[in-house]
Design a protein around this nucleic acid. Sequence first.
DNA 1: TTGAAAGCGATACCAG
DNA 2: CTGGTATCGCTTTCAA
Lengths: 371, 371
Amino acid sequence: MARPITVYDIAAALDVSTGTVHRALRNGEGINPLTKKKVLSMAKSLGYRPNLAARYLSQKKKTKISINTLQGTTSFWDDVRDGIEEEAKAQGIDSVQLEFRTFPNLNEGDEAAFNAAMKNGSDAVIMFPSRPNLLRGWLHNSRRSGIPVVCVATDAPDSGRLALVSVDTNVSGSLAADLIGRFCHGVGSVAVTLSDRGITEHAEKRDSFQSTLEALHPGMKLVATVEDHDDEAETYAKSRELFASHPDLAGIYITTEDSMPVIRAARDMGVLGKLTIITTDLFPALVHEIRNGAVAATIFQRPRTQGRMAFRLLHEYLVEGQVSSQKLTLSPHLITRGNLEYFLKGLSGAVERSSPRRGSHVLDDSASATA
Amino acid sequence: MARPITVYDIAAALDVSTGTVHRALRNGEGINPLTKKKVLSMAKSLGYRPNLAARYLSQKKKTKISINTLQGTTSFWDDVRDGIEEEAKAQGIDSVQLEFRTFPNLNEGDEAAFNAAMKNGSDAVIMFPSRPNLLRGWLHNSRRSGIPVVCVATDAPDSGRLALVSVDTNVSGSLAADLIGRFCHGVGSVAVTLSDRGITEHAEKRDSFQSTLEALHPGMKLVATVEDHDDEAETYAKSRELFASHPDLAGIYITTEDSMPVIRAARDMGVLGKLTIITTDLFPALVHEIRNGAVAATIFQRPRTQGRMAFRLLHEYLVEGQVSSQKLTLSPHLITRGNLEYFLKGLSGAVERSSPRRGSHVLDDSASATA
DNA sequence: TTGAAAGCGATACCAG
DNA sequence: CTGGTATCGCTTTCAA
């Protein structure tokens, strides 16, 4: 293999200076469109690949990345943030500066956080699109419209976001269906809860749950889909309704974090014992319910890994100018009473802890690291 | 935060040259022990952190890493190798040169491969310790004894290896136990197959399988543990014996890749239908058996991620001089008939393909990437 | 054993 | 809009 092509090679080939080459390749401004085109095509034909080490060494200011996420009600977003931070520092070369901005809930502070990031001159954004349909407008309004945005957990379709990192909703839904079918011996009626049918991920989980149930466990029937709108009181009330109108319910699949009100309703109405419950994610209260057998299994969405992948994707874009995939979906982990304790040990306290900690060296969700 | 400390700062503080500082910090040779000590302590007290970009930029020769693994009988090791390669190039800066050496089976060519790596001047090794207890001797015999070795999949205890990457055996075994218990409605006798009790990972899977079974499904009983020594004929024969002597067997947990002979034996003896089988890993033949319902679930050990993590660990060591963890264990993925198809889609053909392919951009096992 | 200086390949800046 | 050159922090080499 020959010596790598450098900016000097390009400059020499065209008899221009490296400054010009650099402007053509990166700045984009203050350069004659014609020269630019020549440089670009020469770079391509020579097979130029920038030397990142040289780039990082000479670059004055780090690229700013704004991380806009929900304040942790559970530990999910804390873990996502940790994952991003871990990956950033695992990069070894800190050419990047992270700025975390959090907002209290789905309708509050999200736009302000986004605008703050824009005003602050962030070069890229990793965010939870709390209101997916609004993102498009924000992006459009922002002066610098080319800014790359990576969405985590939920997509913002047609918003112009660069990429999405989320859990594989089909794997989640179909796994839940197969397990609930097996656990219930293939007979009985089941229900699904989700936040809102309008959220793509939730709808997908429900749909693959249903289709897998029909395909593999035809003796079972999906009798209800509850929309809880992420509201605890609403979830509790609707769950009670559900259990009242379907006293024979055999199982329920909760596609969101909002499982505690459902469990409480079931307990209050005395149907908990005969219900096979499959939940989503993991947090202290849920750990308890798995231990005592109320919840048969939970589908862990690997928030830390979602964060890590989001950073990698962004970094790839910043370096290459493009991403290898616009949608990156992770397989969830299954946690049951059987493997719960081992799993928690692997998480190094990440789930049980109440406040974010530092200095952990876990390289992957549920990877346990022994010093 | 202040300007980072550089070699110049250390040099100035001690009134020596950067050459000397460098020799103290990296070369180790041709330097007065006293000066070296002084530089080292000054570096520490100033909080010196090397600038990797500068290092990579100026370094002439890349560090060589030898990857010593089994030739793929199934796709497991192909995937491990892919994972290593992906991570290496994801690093962006190619300061590393990978050299792959494979050996045909557990007792053949492994030592030669190791010696070849040593003779060739490899700076580090990622390997499958086919004969764990021999590694110690090899490492000792090699002149350059400080060479870092990362083991994948299986440990080589007390060999002096730097670190281990493997799947969490406790999570695997306990998950298998809980599922088999649930699928069999909590009653019946079950068996386990493993390669050899002497292999730590296999013993651990068996043990946590047993203890979880006892704890959560006391109505079930582990009646046999079969050692198959990774030999197909032996596995088949012993499986037949097992089914003959335990005609009432309700389930079996196969902790290794060697599941096909077991399934064949069960089929030949007409007990397949009433058996709940949980296997390990995923390959084309097994895909078929999951589809047709012969296998209830398989525990996927994420070979690609194991490879990625092994590389990261090594890279961390090469950079930092130490690793954050000596044991890195991953949580396995559960695959059932329900989520199999989605899972395969996510693997982008990695499992179904017969020969290694390139150019995929999957960032994590079972992460599906859409361009 | 140590010092001095020349790269590495980008980016940044100042003149023209 | 373009050219020339200093610079980033480390490694490497050559002299002393």
